[in-house]
Design a binder for these strands. Structure first.
Lengths: 189, 189
DNA sequence: ATGAACTTTCATAAGATTCTGAAAGTTCTG
DNA sequence: CAGAACTTTCAGAATCTTATGAAAGTTCAT
């Protein structure tokens, strides 16, 4: 009803889309990805690209490319309607699926890469003979690289655990989350 | 011993510094921050800025600014030596302290901001009267924003739990980490 | 106080990323 | 199969980020 009363809603929805955009940008994606996905997600029904261009004030080119990215990450899917030449886009609604995929494919890969380098370096340093003076420093370097490895492994395991839990069900994760919240002493909501 | 035999070591250390730089960049910091911190961390003893400029091939300006950043994040500290006019820089060695501070001050803040927006929007939409047709869509939007909130809250609680655990001791976290690793079924190391 | 030794600042350059929009490419309908 | 309706591509523009290095600012031994 009252199409111009709904303007307020539009504003808020737009803000939500921007917030998601900011989060995504923070996560190393393009801001536009978050904005488009959120818009589709909130809409709940497939929208044509032109509609997104208008709502988000982006060019057709940007929309096309960004939608391709989103599709590639499996968070938006493309559908057609009989008798309509346009393509419609719909948001993947299983948010956890999206997040865990990113964790798996991006964060984990990043950590893995670093671990590789750490191990290489450790091996190389360990397998060399040093004079008495250098030996001390070399030992310290080894020890510190080992600690970096440890940290990376903790991170890796955390990620794996989170992804694994979430794969089966969001439930267990929620429990963990609640425990954490209680621990840290939160207030409202 | 054999200063040019040590070249290999230098290469590996440089790689480690770059790996840390990449991780930090991935986390939304400047790559140079990671490179400098790692160099100092591996060195184990305070180094003057000029040394860093040379080793990492960066300008004095970049070194100065980046070191200021690192200092601001509390991951590098600045010391002086009697009879030496230069300032020496040393890496904070409590890596966990660094990470948890970032989690607390940055990631958490980011999530908090988004939660705020989500709640605002929910309230605004909920407190409006809709016609029968719009009511359906509004309800769906509400429901979806709520789910975004849920996810953000899970993330927030995870972060808080991790930070909290780590504050007391890295030990508990390690246990969690191992559990996760076992769950996910890893192989070597 | 002076000035040599360092450090910080900041305008400008360099580099990287993202956006635009028109041209080229597709895909349907009639 | 012609052409209208859309979509993709991509070279260039705009924007954002990071680096440079010379000038200005400090600090300290004398």
């Amino acid at each position: 009803m009252a199409p111009q009363l709904a303007q307020d809603d539009q504003d808020h929805l737009h803000e939500v889309a921007d917030a998601v955009g900011a989060l995504m940008e923070f996560w190393g994606f393009k801001r536009a990805m978050g904005r488009i996905w959120a818009t589709l997600y909130l809409e709940g029904e497939p929208l044509p690209a032109a509609e997104l261009c208008e709502r988000l004030d982006i060019s057709t080119g940007a929309a096309s490319m960004t939608l391709a990215d989103l599709e590639h990450w499996g968070v938006v899917l493309r559908t057609r309607r009989p008798g309509d030449r346009r393509e419609y886009f719909e948001a993947e609604t299983d948010v956890w699926k999206m997040v865990s995929r990113v964790l798996r494919e991006r964060e984990l890969a990043q950590i893995e890469r670093a671990l590789q380098v750490f191990d290489n370096a450790r091996e190389a340093i360990a397998s060399r003979k040093y004079g008495v003076v250098e030996a001390f420093r070399a030992r310290r370097k080894l020890e510190r690289i080992a600690r970096l490895s440890d940290l990376a492994k903790v991170g890796k395991s955390l990620l794996m655990a989170v992804v694994q839990q979430g794969k089966a069900d969001l439930g267990p994760l929620r429990r963990f989350a609640r425990a954490g919240a209680a621990l840290a002493g939160k207030r409202r909501e």
